[in-house]
Write a protein that binds this DNA or RNA. Sequence first.
DNA 1: ACCCTGATGACAGCGGCTGACATCAGTGCT
DNA 2: AGCACTGATGTCAGCCGCTGTCATCAGGGT
Lengths: 188, 188
Amino acid sequence: MGRWEPNARGRLAQAAIELYVERGYEQTTVAEIAKRAGLTERTFFRHFADKREVLFSGSGSLRDHLVNAVDAAPDSAAPIDVIAGAVASVGVLFHERHESARQRQAVIAANAELRERELIKLASLSAALADALRRRGVPDPAASLAAEAGIAVFKIAFERWISGTGEPDLSRFVREAFDELKAVTAGR
Amino acid sequence: MGRWEPNARGRLAQAAIELYVERGYEQTTVAEIAKRAGLTERTFFRHFADKREVLFSGSGSLRDHLVNAVDAAPDSAAPIDVIAGAVASVGVLFHERHESARQRQAVIAANAELRERELIKLASLSAALADALRRRGVPDPAASLAAEAGIAVFKIAFERWISGTGEPDLSRFVREAFDELKAVTAGR
DNA sequence: ACCCTGATGACAGCGGCTGACATCAGTGCT
DNA sequence: AGCACTGATGTCAGCCGCTGTCATCAGGGT
């Protein structure tokens, strides 16, 4: 057996989320998180860049998923449809996750610092999507606009999915929001 | 004459921006800002909620301008055109400000915390625009989508305006970006 | 003269975050 | 076996952003 209990990072993440839910983000100190995980404050900061990052470290896989989906789209597809398809395809990442996603989102919504961090994560998704489009030969500003539009749609679709009850399909909300966007920008 | 030198807030803001430009945001402490303004650290925090806010306190007037422009649009205008007109009209707020805007943007771009704050300010503009549309009777999600699209366009237009030389009209970039967005979402 | 208000100063303290160094189980090499 | 080396963790000191609290004091009204 190892010198230390295994999965220090996972224990820290779980302890953090529990405490954020139990007593709120601001009312939780890093020392408390570390203590619940059986580690020290210093070790927390070795695993997470800051106190917020615990809630966002999973966004890397979302980014990868989106970029892969863009790369896999047929050459003939229009940029907006490539983006729409990629964003709709992230639905699978959230299957069976409705409840934990809702809880996490409630924590984020309750705190301004966390909302800031979420926005920059979304912006980095947008940048990654725009990059992927440019690699396909889509010029700017079309690439940036399509990517920004896609993220705007995702935000709204996700919000509706979270505030809904049960577990309907996130992808459906995404497709609906895209249709609405097309109608709106067409001037209707 | 007053007991204190006048315009404490203005002096703090100017000292802060100077220092942020001279030596970078992170390398500047609030104590240094206060000292240069002839005040104390505590007084800085009476005028600005945090160290970042110095660079963003002007966003309130931008918000007001946008909302007023939406309110003033003719009833017959389509939501997307109301937003396009409102966003394009902010160009006047930036006349003669190209250089200072560029400098400020360089400071923000160089620091992750500042980019986070900028994004949340933009998000609050989007929320204000969506509210204004709803007051006109535009239902959701059309209102939110039109507002998000407007802010996405503004981001891209502003970026192009900043990176350009001389002082062309920001409004022109906004209108061009809106036309591009319409083309993109139409699937071209 | 009197008090009241509002902006500022002085001071103590919390908590996020970092740098530097120590510790020590496992790993592989001789 | 002996040994150096690695890498995750602990320990400690310290900076700085930010806040609560109380004191100070000019100007304005009564």
